[in-house]
Simulated assay, not measured.
Amino acid sequence: MMAPSHAATGLLTGVLTTAAMAPVMAVGPAELLAGAAIGAGAALLPDIDHTESTVARAHGPVTRGLAHGARWISVEVYRRTTTPKDTAADGAHRFLWHTPAAAAATGAAVGLGAALSGFLLGMVLWFTLGLGLLGLAQNLRRGRRRKQLMSWPVVSFVSALGAAALVYGGVAHGAHVGAVVAVGMLTGALGDGLTRSGVPLAWPFLVNGRRWAMIGVPRSARFSTGTWPERVVCWGSLIAASVTGLALV
């Protein structure tokens, strides 16, 4: 599972995307923390199409229900847009929600909601905090303590506390939140493009007659999940995010 590395890279891009908003809005420690949390969770969102993923487990029945719905949508979109040259597949995991188009659409919807209401920003923070926390918690050693910390009631409760602290602390809400979500989702999709399978980054455009062409880095540079290159990406992103955040505060 790439959950820890997805969360770590999303955390880094969340900080960087939020910092890039400085010319048009005030960016302080609260905004950087919120951006990190949203980015970490958003990077896991492409896996909402898998009912046993970290995303599906993060908030119990809420995220499991969303995962089933997202999987159904992915299958339906695949069935209606596939071409004769596409490789036969079920269209469920690593299809629609791993596309830049899905990231842009989700980011636009979230950005609109966050611009309209601080409450909606709080809900986005609660949701993404849970995803990011559960993803990063998988770096902990296996055991009873890890199992307790990773249970969805604990994750949801801690996420609610964190979201409330940020909202009541005056974190800015606005359309920039959607940009952080979109970049985070794209970061997660690109991360999967480093692995053996690749992702449909060109959808809905055709690549050699295929709408669902699986694209990634050159095959010689790809790696399997759980191997040392993934750990380097994970810990390198966490260190870079920490250094960048401290430098910006």
Rank of each mutant, 00 (worst) to 15 (best):
R210L: 05
V232T: 01
R196E: 14
G209T: 09
W212E: 01
R219D: 15
R219T: 15
W203D: 07
S224A: 15
P229T: 05
V233Y: 04
T227A: 14
V232F: 01
R210H: 00
P218E: 11
E230F: 07
V232E: 04
P229K: 08
G209N: 05
R196W: 13
P200Q: 05
V233W: 06
L201G: 08
W212I: 02
G226H: 10
W212G: 01
R219A: 11
S220Y: 07
T227D: 09
N208D: 15
W212M: 07
G193D: 07
T227V: 08
R231N: 02
W212D: 06
G198E: 01
P200M: 08
G191H: 07
V199R: 03
G193N: 09
G216Y: 03
L194G: 03
I215C: 13
P204T: 13
R196P: 06
L206G: 06
S220L: 03
V232M: 06
G193C: 04
V232D: 05
P218H: 07
V217R: 09
L206M: 14
P218G: 11
S197A: 11
W228K: 13
P200L: 10
T225C: 01
S224D: 15
R231Y: 14
W228M: 07
F223D: 11
G216P: 08
R211L: 03
R210N: 01
R196F: 12
L194C: 08
W203I: 07
W212F: 03
G198D: 05
V207N: 01
R219I: 06
G193A: 15
S197E: 12
E230C: 04
W228H: 07
P218M: 12
G216L: 02
S220W: 15
R196H: 13
V199G: 00
L206V: 12
D192T: 02
P218V: 13
